[in-house]
Amino acid sequence: MISTTSLKADFKMMIREPLLILFMFIPIFIFVVFKLLIVFFVPVLYNMTGFNLENYYGYVLSASLLFTPNMLGAVVAFLMIDERDAKIYELMSVTPLGSVGYICNRLVIPFILSIIYTFIGYYILNIFYIPTFTLALISILLGIDSIIIGLLLFTVADDKVKGLTYAKGFGVFTILALIDLLKLPWASFLGALLPFYWVTRLVNDSSNIILVLKSVVIHGLWLFIIINFCRKSNTNSK
């Protein structure tokens, strides 16, 4: 399903396209910005208002880790939406690679990068302890999140403008991931329906084995639903 030559071609395209390089560096940039804010801004905030953000570092870490898969998923979705607008997608679906192979190839990149960036981000921020096993699991879950975002955006948006509109709407996901902060039971229930929420839970409560199982199941379920949703809409319209 995943061919190496096509992967290589994708990679070459990325190197040639400055925008993709930039997108590969922006996550690091974001981590650094978060870190700088923590170093300089948190003491100021504490002195000014008496509010100690340190109590919420689990949420800060989760928010910054979630940023990468959401963004990479969206970038790849836009790449595919642009290619569909330019009819490259149709071309791909009549090559031996096929449309499924094409989509898989596209999504491998954010998946792998999200895993790598999770570790990088964790060590750059260095504010909250997570056991290595849980961190590894979180990194894979975030990789899956990037696939979910990418497939979802690609499937629901049939052109660029819709893509932008939904991408904006997807900002809600990050908010829902941190929804426990609001301490509203109904809102937390809403958040718990989404995979992103469970990443935050796992970051904050990293040795809870039941939580681990729950988040894996939720992620698996979502991946299954999204893949089927994508398949269905592809066979219906294309």
């Binding site: 509109t165 809600v172 609001l182």
Partner: peptide, 21 residues
């Protein structure tokens, strides 16, 4: 037709929810 307004309404509701908390 592009669904701008609907997405935007949802976002506004979320903002309202957060601000109210």
């Amino acid at each position: 037709k592009q669904g701008f307004y609907i997405v935007y309404i949802v976002l506004i509701l979320i903002y309202m929810l957060i601000i109210s908390q």
